[in-house]
Deep mutational scan, measured.
Amino acid sequence: VKVFRALYTFEPRTPDELYFEEGDIIYITDMSDTNWWKGTSKGRTGLIPSNYVAEQ
């Protein structure tokens, strides 16, 4: 598990995607895809765009 911080707010387009706000901490559990990672924030899990976060 790696810890990342959201650089921007992300509004999901599908139920599989995770909503998060700029500054949120996201725990990444799967980075197997280059563009979409699986992450958890505020008790919810979903896909996030990798270019919206920076490693802490």
Score class of each variant (00 low, 15 high):
Gly43Arg: 03
Asp30Cys: 05
Asp24Ser: 05
Ile28Pro: 00
Pro12Tyr: 05
Asn51Leu: 09
Val3Asn: 05
Glu55His: 09
Glu21Val: 10
Leu18Glu: 00
Glu11Pro: 03
Ile28Glu: 00
Ile48Tyr: 01
Thr45Glu: 12
Leu47His: 04
Asp24Ile: 04
Met31Phe: 08
Leu7Tyr: 03
Ile48Ser: 02
Thr29Ala: 06
Ser50Lys: 10
Phe10Thr: 07
Phe4Gly: 05
Arg5Ala: 06
Tyr8Val: 09
Gly39Ser: 01
Gly39Asp: 01
Val3Gly: 07
Ser50Glu: 04
Arg5Cys: 12
Asp30Ile: 04
Gly43Leu: 03
Pro12Phe: 06
Tyr8Ser: 09
Phe4Trp: 09
Lys38Thr: 14
Gly39His: 02
Asn35Cys: 15
Asp24His: 02
Thr9Gln: 06
Glu11Gln: 14
Pro15Gln: 11
Gly43Asp: 06
Asp16Met: 11
Pro15Lys: 12
Ile26Val: 08
Gln56Cys: 15
Leu18His: 01
Trp36Val: 05
Glu17His: 12
Ser41Ala: 12
Arg13Ser: 14
Val3Arg: 11
Ser32His: 09
Asn51Gln: 11
Leu47Asp: 03
Thr9Asp: 11
Asn51Phe: 09
Ala6Arg: 00
Arg13Gln: 13
Glu55Phe: 12
Val3Met: 13
Asn35Arg: 12
Glu17Phe: 12
Glu17Ile: 04
Phe4Ser: 03
Asn35Val: 13
Ile28His: 00
Lys38Asp: 03
Ser41Ile: 14
Phe4Ile: 03
Ser41Leu: 15
Pro15Cys: 09
Gly23Ser: 03
Met31Gly: 04
Asn35Ser: 12
Ser50Phe: 06
Phe20Asn: 02
Asn51Tyr: 10
Tyr8Thr: 08
Arg13Phe: 07
Lys2Ile: 08
Leu18Ser: 00
Thr40Trp: 14
Glu17Ala: 08
Phe10Gln: 05
Ser50His: 07
Trp37Pro: 01
Arg13Lys: 12
Thr34Phe: 10
Arg13Asp: 09
Asn51Ala: 13
Glu11Tyr: 15
Ile26Trp: 01
Asp16Tyr: 13
Ser50Val: 10
Val1Tyr: 14
Gln56Tyr: 15
Met31Gln: 13
Gln56Glu: 15
Lys38Asn: 07
Arg13Ile: 08
Ile28Phe: 01
Tyr52Asn: 03
Gln56Val: 15
Tyr8Gly: 07
Ile48Cys: 04
Ile25Lys: 04
Arg13Ala: 12
Trp36Phe: 08
Pro12Val: 04
Pro12Ile: 05
Ser50Thr: 07
Leu7Gly: 01
Met31Tyr: 07
Pro15Gly: 09
Gln56Leu: 15
Arg44Val: 11
